[in-house]
Design a protein around this nucleic acid. Structure first.
Length: 427
RNA sequence: GAGACCAUGGCGAAAAGGCGAACGCGGCGGAUUGUGACUCCGUUAGUACCAGUUCGAGUCUGGUUGGUCUCCCCA
């Protein structure tokens, strides 16, 4: 039975694409106000970029990448996240030479090879922003604020911000030793997952859902932060407080990508199956250099749009955003039918949305089609009207009808619509 | 990568192994209507795929492909 879409992908169909446009528009308008400008980078990059940027030992690179060899025998990978590509473009296009810092945003598909579940797909979409060229903690706070505002302006409730500082690589190395000293003695009492996590990523053990009570006395990374990290983190919190952005300090927050330094944060919400993280980000001060550029600091975020949409749905915030047609032309008879193309063109040139029947349907079915198109007006054309050079214009809901000169159809509809809107504004 | 559950028209939804696979919505045609809306009549189209068990499979078994969900991890 034909072809099926690849596993873990989705067709976004009319009726749903309008909601996507609404969400994207919200993101773009927010970026306009925060002065982030759009960048569009390729959806595939050299595999090495992600290995270097995201980190060789991350789950993403180890087992989730869509990697293929192109015909020139180069290893390419569909982007699993947005930051590496943006940073590559920043370096390659020498944006560090610009006098101001670089504030970029993107909206687009990302790819990770995972088993799909609620809110997780192999092709998913992210809205992300990146600010490169400043280590000002006020910028960290601004990035967090933008993401928070995104959810708020969409009307979502119950979105919280988890905040942590993961320090610098040096700080993490020290903390890792402290943590291992705490964990290794109790290794045998831990769950299977954690026992294997101790080797790969001990910081993540503290996130374990099974053994939380055992970790109450675990060392906190906050206590391991050096002077610089502490000062930076304090200022981020201060800015958030002053901006009225609420957050939960979560010293166990760890991100899945290696490039984060200092600030790390996640947006969380309930309502999407087992998943509660809907977006996240942080500062990445070593990444630009890692990718081969100047040692420029950066901070950014990535928000999952599928998860945003699911959350909108679970909170009953799924407006019908299709405005419907202004006019549906109903032709009665062959001669009238011949006059439709010119009429449609007149209407569309005048800025109206207009539709007709193309399936040779009977009158009754044409009116039903007009309803499906949620047309405001039906323009009904019969042979006798045609002979008089007129067409009858009928309000689909009011049923009111009046004859209009064919050449004045668009104008008449514009007039009616503006009257209608005036009425709505008064009431 | 591991596991659980599921798969019937365009959509929803029945059928305890047994007539030609209900019913509803939708679509199309017709009656009625001054050229739609209510009502009535007619009609349309389906057991995901491949094997097997059986006299007989939508129903049981195995496999495949998808979907949903969970673990892992993340967006």
């Amino acid at each position: 039975m034909g072809f099926q879409k690849p596993p873990g992908t989705q067709d976004i169909l009319p009726g749903n694409s309008e909601l996507w446009q609404f969400v994207e528009k919200t993101a773009r308008d927010l970026c306009r106000r925060y002065r982030f400008n759009e960048i569009r980078t390729p959806i595939f990059e050299a595999t090495e970029l992600f290995k270097r940027g995201v980190g060789e030992t991350t789950d993403i690179v180890e087992k989730e990448m869509y990697t293929f060899e192109d015909r020139g025998k180069r290893s390419m990978t569909l982007r699993p996240e947005g930051t590496a590509g943006v940073v590559r473009a920043y370096v390659e296009n020498k944006l560090f030479g610009e006098p101001d810092l670089t504030k970029l945003y993107y909206i687009g598909p990302m790819f990770r090879y995972e088993r799909a579940q609620a809110g997780r797909y192999r092709q998913f979409h992210q809205f992300g922003i990146e600010a490169i060229g400043s280590s000002d903690p006020a910028l960290d706070a601004e990035v967090i604020a933008l993401g928070y505002s995104f959810y708020r302006e969409l009307g979502l409730t119950g979105v919280t911000v988890d905040l942590n500082s993961v320090g610098t690589p040096a700080v993490r190395a020290v903390f890792r030793e402290k943590l291992l000293a705490f964990l290794l003695p109790m290794k045998d009492s831990l769950c299977k997952d954690c026992q294997s996590r101790i080797e790969r990523n001990p910081l993540r053990v503290l996130d374990c859902k099974v053994d939380q009570d055992k970790f109450t006395n675990a060392p906190s990374i906050i206590d391991s932060l050096d002077e610089e990290c502490t000062v930076h983190f304090a200022r981020v919190k201060e800015c958030l407080d002053e901006m009225d952005i609420p957050y939960n300090l979560n010293s166990r927050l760890v991100r899945g990508l290696d490039y984060y330094t200092h600030t790390a944060f996640e947006y969380k919400a309930q309502g999407i199956g087992a998943i509660d993280t809907i977006g996240g980000g942080g500062r990445y001060n070593g990444l630009v250099a890692e990718v081969g550029g100047d040692d420029q600091p950066g901070v950014g975020l990535g928000l999952g749009l599928e998860r945003t949409l699911l959350l909108l749905e679970s909170q009953g915030l799924k407006p019908n955003l299709d405005n419907g047609a202004d006019v549906y032309i109903v032709a009665l008879g062959e001669r009238a039918e011949k006059a439709i193309p010119a009429l449609l063109q007149q209407l569309r040139n005048a800025g109206l949305s207009a539709e007709r029947d193309y399936l040779g349907r009977k009158t009754k079915a044409q009116f039903k089609a007009a309803e499906r198109n949620r047309a405001r007006f039906a323009a009904v054309l019969g042979d006798d009207e045609l002979d008089r050079g007129e067409i009858s214009l009928r309000g689909m809901t009011s049923g009111e009808q009046q004859a209009v000169k064919l050449e004045n159809l668009a104008e008449a509809i514009h007039t009616f619509i503006s009257i209608e809107e005036k009425g709505n504004n008064n009431s």
